[in-house]
């Protein structure tokens, strides 16, 4: 049953109807990145690639995660189709874990495509021989798990979860890594950046960073094992709590769906 739910959900999420917009976005991002790297003279450099991943790749992935994680259950509730799922002879935790795994797989697939697109655009075919690119593939998979799990949990707790996920992905994740002290530990993006092999200076700071440590300074000090453990822990805890929540909560089609 798990495999059927997983595969059918994956088929739905990876349908061209849903993927088209993301493929166009990736192509657009890659084209813009190419133009930018050409203009700045950083084309083919690790710094150029690292900067692109930092300011575009990881952000786009967070957006993808917000969209697909909220489709796991919150989307079904809003479409009112949840009723077909929760009245079938299948344990709710199995249903939730299979669907969330499908969402995370989708986020990871889109993330990996993006990494490869940016890698190819920057390094050409040499991208396949660049350890930094392959490391980013792993980082994106871990990030997909962490973002996917966290956004899933947010969507279990709150109505209009997409709005809160956006706030997290582009508000929290922008400002928290740049706040003074050790606050960057509380950001998924910091842990992802800490795991990459991007050269120093890849994550340029903005006005906020003047208040305290800059993102690149902060993430540099997080050990890799700590980041991997944190990202996996976020995934396991968030999906586990979501499963418990889903098992205990009542889900009926909402009349105020928007």
């Amino acid at each position: 049953m798990f495999s059927y739910v997983y595969l059918s959900t994956l088929r739905e999420f990876l349908s061209l109807r849903r993927l088209a917009i993301w493929l166009i976005a990736i192509l657009g991002v890659a084209a813009l990145g190419f133009a930018w790297l050409r203009l700045s003279g950083k084309l083919g450099t690790e710094l150029g690639y690292g900067t692109l991943m930092g300011i575009m790749g990881f952000r786009l992935m967070a957006l993808v995660a917000a969209v697909f994680s909220t489709a796991v259950i919150a989307g079904e509730v809003e479409q009112k189709t949840i009723v077909y799922l929760v009245t079938r002879p299948i344990l709710r935790p199995i249903l939730l874990s299979a669907r969330s795994l499908a969402a995370i797989s989708t986020i990871a697939v889109i993330g990996v495509v993006m990494v490869l697109a940016l890698g190819l655009m920057n390094f050409g075919v040499q991208a396949f021989k660049t350890p930094m690119v392959w490391r980013d593939v792993l980082v994106v998979i871990l990030g997909a798990m962490a973002y996917g799990g966290l956004f899933l949990f947010i969507s279990m707790l709150l109505n209009r979860a997409f709005l809160f996920c956006l706030l997290f992905a582009f508000g929290w994740e922008t400002f928290v890594p740049q706040m003074p002290g050790d606050l960057y530990y509380a950001s998924i993006l910091s842990h992802m950046q800490a795991l990459t092999l991007h050269p120093e200076g890849s994550y340029p700071s903005t006005a906020l960073s003047n208040l305290g440590s800059s993102a690149s300074e902060g993430v540099a000090v997080i050990p890799a094992w700590a980041s991997v453990t944190t990202l996996l822990a976020i995934f396991v805890v968030a999906v586990g709590l979501s499963a418990v929540w889903f098992q205990q909560s009542e889900y009926v089609p909402r009349e105020d769906a928007e």
Partner: peptide
């Protein structure tokens, strides 16, 4: 949330 019941129950919402 009981699959044992849902196996024997059909629902047309």
């Amino acid at each position: 949330a009981n699959p044992n019941v849902f196996r024997r129950l059909g629902y047309c919402p």
